[in-house]
Amino acid sequence: MILAILGGCATAPDAPIDVRVSNLPDGDHIVLRTPEVEIPASSETMWCSYGTWDGGDVGIAAYQRVQSAWGHHLRLLFVDDGAPADDTVIDCTGADVLPLDEARPVFFPSTDTDEQIVNALPAGMATPMGEGQRYVLENHVVNTSEAALLVSDVVLLSVVEPATVSTWASPWIAALETLSLPPAQSSSASLDCAIDEPIALLFVRGHQHEWGAGVTLDRVDGAGLVAPLYDSGPWQASYREAAPTTTFWDAPELISAGSTLRTNCQWFNDTDDTLQYPAEMCEVAGMKLGTEPWICRQ
């Protein structure tokens, strides 16, 4: 798929519909804006733009994505120094284009809203972002219209001085990306993630799309005993944007070394086509204690 990067507004009769984000919530936010990109009609794509943070060492205390009605998600990811140059834009739709072990999630929100920043960590808690940190904005757009869209979306960050942070937090995610869901039938799949070092979870949130039927997360100890940690219940269309969340803010859920985190997903594909990532997904994610992200993907 070709993504057209535009330097200005087109005026031709077949110009794309302008859905660039313009009205931002009030507040003292850091604004990270994606470049203008033209998304073809009737298409689903993820596109990625690179940058470098030059605002000094900070803690991210709150995060909000502001997208058009066609936006699915907009994630801030950290990358290493060898990543493409600032302002580079690539089509990153495939799971292997920007794998999670090369582009590390920065912040997972426990809720979603377009009205105000509510995706905030508790007072005194933040996730670190250092001076000179390379990053990429991963923008997932589902254009269900019959016209091309001109898109430019925004991530808003609320940052604090590191000296004010009493507890550091970082993201974690388990993602099953090797999906192949046959047409006109139910499917299920599981992902087992071995825990080599203890991790303490702060919250859990599942993610599927409209063909999802439910997501669960279990802890399996070394003796094989299974303890449920999360259950989305029967999946609903609205969960695609704001799934149920299980929180452990007051007493972080400790997952001991030698345990396994098992993600279970179910779907019903009522289409005539085989569904693959990113048309459908199977993820659980959240925040945990510590400064380093924990990532498990297959």
Rank of each mutant, 00 (worst) to 15 (best):
G233E: 06
A147C: 13
E241L: 13
P234A: 13
V215W: 00
V204Y: 02
A194W: 03
G206C: 03
A243N: 05
V204R: 03
V141K: 02
P228C: 11
S187D: 04
P183R: 06
S180Q: 11
I173Q: 02
V151E: 06
W168E: 13
G224L: 11
L201Q: 04
T144Q: 12
G233T: 07
A148S: 15
G212V: 05
D192C: 05
Q185F: 02
L149K: 01
P182C: 08
E146C: 11
W235H: 03
P182Y: 05
E210H: 13
G224T: 12
P183I: 06
W235N: 01
S188D: 14
I199V: 15
L157M: 08
A194K: 12
I173D: 01
D218I: 07
V220N: 07
E146Y: 08
A189I: 01
V226H: 08
L176R: 14
D192V: 01
V154M: 04
S180V: 04
D221K: 09
P234V: 11
G233F: 11
S170G: 11
W168I: 09
S166D: 15
A200I: 07
A174D: 05
D218T: 06
T167H: 13
L150Q: 07
V159H: 10
V220M: 10
L179W: 00
V142K: 08
G222K: 13
H207Y: 05
S188P: 03
D153E: 15
L191G: 00
A242I: 11
Q236W: 07
E197N: 12
S238K: 14
V154H: 10
A147Q: 15
V226Y: 06
L150D: 05
C193L: 07
L225K: 14
A148R: 14
V165W: 06
V159W: 03
V141N: 06
Y230V: 01
G212I: 02
T164Q: 13
T216A: 00
Y230L: 00
I199N: 00
L181Y: 04
T167Y: 09
A147Y: 12
L149F: 10
A184V: 11
L157V: 08
A243Y: 03
W172A: 01
L225W: 13
W168Q: 05
V220R: 02
F203I: 02
A237W: 10
A223D: 15
A169L: 04
A189G: 06
G224R: 08
G214I: 00
C193A: 15
H207K: 06
T178N: 15
S187Q: 05
P198N: 09
A227R: 14
A242S: 15
G222P: 07
A184T: 12
E177K: 15
Q236F: 06
A169G: 06
D231T: 06
A213W: 02
A175Q: 09
T178P: 01
I199Q: 04
L217R: 05
D192I: 01
L217A: 05
A242T: 11
L157F: 07
E197T: 14
A169N: 02
S188H: 15
T144N: 14
D192S: 10
V155F: 03
G224Q: 12
V226I: 15
I173K: 04
Q208P: 03
P171M: 08
P182D: 08
V142M: 12
V204Q: 01
L217V: 02
A175R: 07
V160Y: 07
I195L: 08
V160I: 12
A227H: 14
L217E: 04
R219L: 13
S158Y: 04
S190V: 12
A169I: 03
